[in-house]
Design a protein around this nucleic acid. Structure first.
Lengths: 258, 258
DNA sequence: CGACTAATTGATTATTGTCAAAGCAAGTGG
DNA sequence: CCACTTGCTTTGACAATAATCAATTAGTCG
């Protein structure tokens, strides 16, 4: 698979609905690249969020440590995602961010500066806002997913979310993607025991909805799985798509399953 | 209990750490008041988010409807909270918003305009950003809460979150508050069955951590409950508090329980 | 007083967690 | 190349938790 130098650019372009191409604008910015090792922390909760990054490669996660030693994974940060870019998170980080794999990060302080000091309605600014809106949809999706009562649904939904997000940056062909996380991490993200994650994964395999080869995850029938677990892709409320949905007869967000 | 005309002002002031008082600034703004009836929708997902509101009184909730008819409550919107104020959510609403009780809303389009067109670092803007940062912390808290494996913890954490938020707008005395929601709504918010919510509530009562009189909820020992369920208040990562924590020897976010 | 809706309880089933062990793969040092 | 580790996955047996079904009780509102 060809890895783009800056999936961040790809993602922003994919989510931006304005015709102006903002890619060159972003690529033209100064951007120091840094390499981080698996297991190291990029941000510590409560510390100053001095710098903003875009993930060039590797997977990271937001975590929270509980008093009893359990670790909670609040969400995954994938190539193309931004760290500390949110408008209001300009002073302090809201959670720990840890590298799951080795990762390369690009500094995007320039973009942050542009966002807070430049023209609010400029194409670049507007495109970044669309990207942040996507982040918010992902967060709402996480809440929705965790509130589901069934482990089968939760796991299926998470896999579909990862697929959606990786599709944006061309790191999935639609049926499979590289998923460099252990079942332990998966269980921390889903609020399930590791044993049950394994059993549920096996069940998904037996149902022909999931296959695994080493760290490659295959979804032979993503639409089928989406129908089974009632998946609503995070980008569905973004402007252009929402516009289409508004003109449809069915209420937005309501899906028919067969 | 004395109900302030604009809990929104109170909340922003409480969360703002700059010495300048922004209250008059907000109160001086044009603000039409509207009354909404319990059960009605304020926003529909995917529809245009033309207007921003501050909740003056009443409880609302973000919801999502599932294909199988279940309703998920993504979060509660309390007096003092803003709707559609987030910087990037400038075009379309990300979820349905429904009134739980009768509610009065104040239009705050003026503030939104100020935020997107005015000086980024102005005191008002900065105070609103602190308020939005708090919203993000609440969202992270929701993810963390739902990922917990125990119903007892989940319920305790939700009650403590509501208390924290109501304290901000002086709608709780620290030990009790008015909670106008049914156990059905509670169960939709926690991802538990209504029967189990009831049983867990009874257990909390038997443990002396919760009392209820009609719709009044009493937490006789909030700190005790917080220790039992390992509650981290959402405002803990806000600037002034984080600053203190940073200078403490213990890692931020780690709590000791007896 | 009915007619609701909400809350509570019991009995039972289903799901999920916990404990324990075994299998597997990659790496390491002799 | 082979023991030997180490970390991850898989499985089984069992216990705990939570869902479901079914009544009953309590409140509220006309």
């Amino acid at each position: 698979m060809l890895l783009s130098f800056k999936p961040f650019t790809q993602r922003v372009r994919a989510l931006s609905h304005c015709s102006t191409d903002v890619s060159e604008r972003i690529d033209a910015m100064q951007s120091k690249i840094e390499v981080r090792r698996a297991g190291t922390e990029v941000c510590v909760r409560g510390a100053e969020a001095k710098r903003s990054f875009a993930v060039v490669s590797g997977w990271l996660m937001r975590t929270r440590l509980l008093a009893d030693g359990r670790r909670q994974v609040l969400g995954f940060i994938l190539p193309g995602d931004a760290i500390n870019l949110s408008w209001h998170a300009n002073a302090f980080t809201a959670s720990d961010v840890e590298c799951i794999t080795d990762a390369t990060l690009a500094s995007i302080d320039g973009i942050k500066q542009e966002m807070t000091q430049g023209d609010f309605s400029a194409p670049l600014c507007s495109a970044i806002r669309a990207s942040l809106a996507m982040d918010e949809m992902v967060a709402l999706g996480s809440i929705s997913r965790l509130a589901r009562q069934s482990a089968y649904e939760r796991l299926g939904l998470l896999l579909l979310e990862l697929r959606s997000r990786l599709l944006l940056v061309h790191m999935s062909d639609g049926k499979s993607f590289h998923m460099p996380i252990t079942q332990q991490v998966l269980s921390d993200a889903l609020g399930l025991s590791i044993v049950h994650v394994n059993r549920t994964l096996m069940q998904l395999q037996r149902d022909g909805l999931v296959e695994r080869r080493q760290r490659q995850l295959i979804l032979p029938d993503p639409d089928g799985l989406a129908a089974v677990v009632d998946y609503v892709p995070p980008e569905i409320a973004l402007p252009e798509i929402a516009h289409a949905a508004r003109n449809a007869p069915q209420p937005v967000g309501l899906r028919l399953v067969g």
